[in-house]
């Protein structure tokens, strides 16, 4: 009996790291998402989008072929670049974008690896590390366009990190916990977070758009001014990693969003047990919810142009931050009233 339990634990840990919601699912979802993003944009723009790679399945393997192309391209190291930073930064960026996933449970029993009661705090804290490497990328490239891109990134990060924290704090106040699992349990017994505090949800979504560089905040990579922004000098796999990082971030943020605001694995109860109802089902539900959030966010590409950097920074400081404060106040009122 004891051995069986151990095996189940091990399986769960492995599942956790590799499958749910870890590396494999993240990569598969990112590849799928990039494909769907292009398809969605194409549909709005009255065209087909990717089609010729694997025509039978509607071009679904396009992203895979892009990945292969990135893997086998020639890598160019610019002469003037700070080569160590230039080579390391994308890897770190990618790793730190993956890191929050460790602390995001996608089911009631998924927090074995790092048992902690502060998962919300850890995951949000880790999310804010990635931009530092984005700035290093721009600095190391020795290119004015990259440099301007990284400066813009720095401005934007500072102006949008506080609203992110405020919106999470608002939800933490409502749930009275820093752990995802009780937070989801709270939503099961009460209401989903998006109804409890819609302002916080709005702020979170805006910040998610911003920090993953979706339109209309595609400012650091504004191609009509900055060519490719941060990644101007990158090529081959490093460029691919740089491009995939925002999607990983997007995935992490969408997971957090679905846990904090969309009721997590609701309608599966938190008390469900067994391999299927306790393990797979909640995971699948959370990931589907996150995926829908991601799709909505990538759809914005088809609707918006991009803001100017000063406008985005100003709206961060002058609007979003107040929205965040309002969200916190709403939460406090709710806590007092309930």
């Amino acid at each position: 009996m004891g051995i069986l339990l151990l095996i189940i634990w091990l399986i769960q840990d492995l599942l956790y790291l590799i499958v749910f919601p870890g590396l494999v699912v993240a990569m598969v979802l990112v590849i799928l998402l990039i494909y769907l993003e292009r398809k969605i944009a194409a549909k709005v723009q009255m065209r087909y989008g990717p089609l010729y790679v694997s025509r039978k399945v509607g071009g679904a393997l396009q992203s895979v072929s892009d990945l292969l192309r990135f893997s086998f391209q020639e890598f160019i190291l610019p002469i003037g670049s700070d080569s160590i930073a230039f080579l390391m930064a994308p890897g770190f960026m990618f790793a730190f974008a993956m890191m929050p996933l460790i602390f995001i449970p996608v089911g009631p029993y998924y927090s074995y690896l790092f048992p902690s009661t502060l998962t919300i705090l850890f995951s949000v804290a880790l999310i804010t590390i990635t931009p530092i490497y984005a700035i290093i990328v721009g600095w190391a490239s020795d290119n004015k366009f990259s440099f301007i891109g990284s400066l813009r990134e720095a401005f934007l990060v500072i102006s949008y990190e506080i609203p992110l924290l405020l919106s999470v704090i608002a939800m933490v106040i409502v749930y009275r916990t820093l752990n995802y699992i009780p937070a989801v349990a709270f939503q099961e017994t009460h209401l989903p977070g998006i109804i409890l505090n819609p302002i916080a949800a709005l702020v979170f979504i805006i910040v998610a758009i911003r920090s993953t560089g979706r339109f209309p905040f595609d400012i650091t990579e504004a191609d009509s001014e900055l060519i490719m922004g941060l990644y101007t000098e990158y090529s081959a796999l490093f460029f691919g990693i740089g491009m995939a990082t925002p999607y990983i971030e997007l995935y992490a943020l969408s997971l957090i969003f679905s846990l904090l605001f969309l009721g997590g694995w609701w309608p599966v109860s938190i008390h469900a047990t067994g391999l299927l109802a306790g393990l797979f089902l909640p995971g699948i539900i959370v990931i589907i919810k996150a995926f829908i959030v991601m799709m909505v966010l990538v759809f914005l590409r088809a609707v918006y142009p991009r803001y100017r950097v000063d406008q985005a920074v100003r709206s961060g400081w002058e609007r979003i931050i107040y929205l965040g404060i309002i969200a916190v106040i709403i939460s406090i009122l709710e806590v007092i009233i309930i």
Binding site: A41, P216, D218, A302, Y304, P305
Partner: peptide, 12 residues
């Protein structure tokens, strides 16, 4: 459109 980043208007 594409200068401001709106690929939709460009395509339209």
């Amino acid at each position: 459109g594409i200068f401001l980043g709106s690929s939709t208007v460009y395509m339209w």
